[in-house]
Each structure stands twice: as C-alpha cells, then as structure tokens.
Design a protein around this nucleic acid. Structure first.
Lengths: 139, 139
DNA sequence: GCCAAGCTTGGACTTTGTCCAGAAGAATAT
DNA sequence: ATATTCTTCTGGACAAAGTCCAAGCTTGGC
C-alpha cells in the first residue's frame, strides 16, 4: 500500500512507532496537511505523540527529499508527500484548497543565464492562484 | 519622485503621517523589506509609530494592489512595491535575499485548460530557489 | 469649534515553530 | 541476558511574526 513507508525502509530510516504514524498519516496522493493537522491525526492512533516529534519528523522527511514543503502564504506550511513526480500547485484564493497540476515543461529552464545573478539555482516553485468551482458558485 | 505616493493620493487614500512614512520607506525599485524592517526604518523618522500601524498599513497596501506580498518560506513575509510590472523572484535559501527576475513569457499560459479543474485562474507566482554568490563563498 | 468617522497606539493574545534537558527506547558489545 | 552507547521522544519553555482590541487622538465636513 505505502510507497512512502517502503521508500523510507529501503533507505534505512529507523522506523519507530511515532515516525510510522506520521508517515502513514501523510501518505496518499493529493494530501496537503499542515503540521498541526498531522499532529491531530497522528494523535488519534498514538495519543502521546508530541508536537516536537511531529515537527522533527516532518523536517527530516523534507530533508530526505521524501516530502515537499508547500508555503501557502502566511498560513502554516503544508506537507506534500508527492515529492517524486514534479508538480505544481493551484490554490483557491477563497478556501485555500490545493490541487496538484502538472507542468508541460521544466519551468527552471525559463530563467535565462543572464538573469541568475551568480546564484546557484536549484529549484523553482510555481503556484497558480484562482477561485475553485465551489467558491465561484457561492461568491 | 514617488510613484507609489502619487498613486495613493490619486486613489483618495487618506495620507496620514504614519502612512506617508511607511509608503516612503517602501518606495523604490528593488525593495523587499520585512514588516519589521519597515517598522525599524519608519521609526527613525517617526519614533512613536507602532507595530500595529505598520502591519495595518502594509495590509491595506496589499489589498489595494499597490504592494505585493512575497512569502519567503518560513521566514517573515516581505513587501514589494513593484506590483506594477510582472516579475518573479529568486530567493537565496541561506540568507533570504530576494532578486527580481523577469520572465521571458507569461507563465500562466503554461497551465493547460485541461489542468485547470474548473478554477478561474487569475495569477501565478514563480519563485526560483538557490544560493546567492555571497553565501556560496562562506558555505 | 463640534462631531462623527476613521486612524493610531500599546499591550495582550494567537499561531507557528524551535530548542533543550532529561527520560525512554534501540542497537551493539560483552 | 546485561551493560553500554547512541538515538529518539517528550513536554515545557521560548521565540518570532502577526492579529485583535479598547481607548485615545486626528481629520475633515459642517
């Protein structure tokens, strides 16, 4: 069932009860939870799990490259387990819902050499903003 | 001298001493200050100005569309007065410095109709991540 | 000059996240 | 199996960024 857990095991990541629960909560295809939501859901299965552990684990997963941090502008960061396939986000301005979308080309190539100012450019985030169908009906 | 102040006056924005100072501090071409930096600089000219007023004013400017909020990932938001010409940002992962860069085409066009899921897409933010020359020397 | 509306203030409060020292739990060696 | 060592977990304190609010102050219109 779990790509994420399997990949972690393969990498020799020590899989404690706490880490397993965090990884399980996070696993899925269009999941974009905040650290707090992860903590709440993890707490249902492992009531004593501490906030610190959830934060530590999430940060480790990000460092390992298994999970992506998605900044949604002022609010809490969200964590996206789908770090393996390049994708971008489409965020509803009203309700904050996130959809994954897929680029038809590598956007990093769009930055000309002359525009790099000596930076070592290693990543790019593309976030489309709009209003989702549900919010349009109501607005 | 000031595009920003002029535009604000034209729009009938009440120009108090505090707001004027905030707008003046923010004015310029490659300015990306945090709210705290704005407060500090504004405080030099108007020592009693409060943090709350700086935040209020910045949020109003953002709502008016005269200033852009730039989220730099965990750190404090930065405010960019150059909301008039389309541009993107190149952010240093280490020190948080921001450079403006200019797209060679409209990135919003990169999102195929089939990928819009019924959203009314009205904007896109592109943020390149990398390490700036200064931080590379030290790292 | 008076009044209402709108600004500003400072402090309390909230949210999000980090840090730390000690406790608990694995892994390794004996 | 036991001791030792290393890693991880915990809970609470702490910090940064930002919001909220009631009270006071300005401003513009009359």
């Amino acid at each position: 069932m779990s790509d994420l857990l399997e990949r972690l095991r393969e990498r020799g990541w020590r899989l404690t009860a706490q880490r397993r629960v965090v990884a399980e909560v996070l696993n899925g295809d269009h999941v974009h939870l905040t650290a707090d939501e992860v903590h709440a859901r993890a707490g249902k299965r492992l009531p004593e799990i501490s906030r610190a552990t959830v934060y530590n684990t999430l940060n480790e997963l990000v460092t390992l490259g298994e999970v992506l941090e998605v900044g949604t502008d002022g609010r809490a960061k969200r964590y996206d387990p789908n770090a393996r396939t390049a994708h971008q986000h489409l965020v509803c301005r009203v309700c904050g819902t996130i959809r994954d979308v897929h680029p038809d080309c590598d956007p990093i190539a769009g930055l000309a050499e002359a525009e790099r100012f000596g930076f070592d450019v290693s990543g790019v985030e593309v976030t489309f903003r709009g209003v989702c169908p549900d919010c349009r009906k109501q607005g």
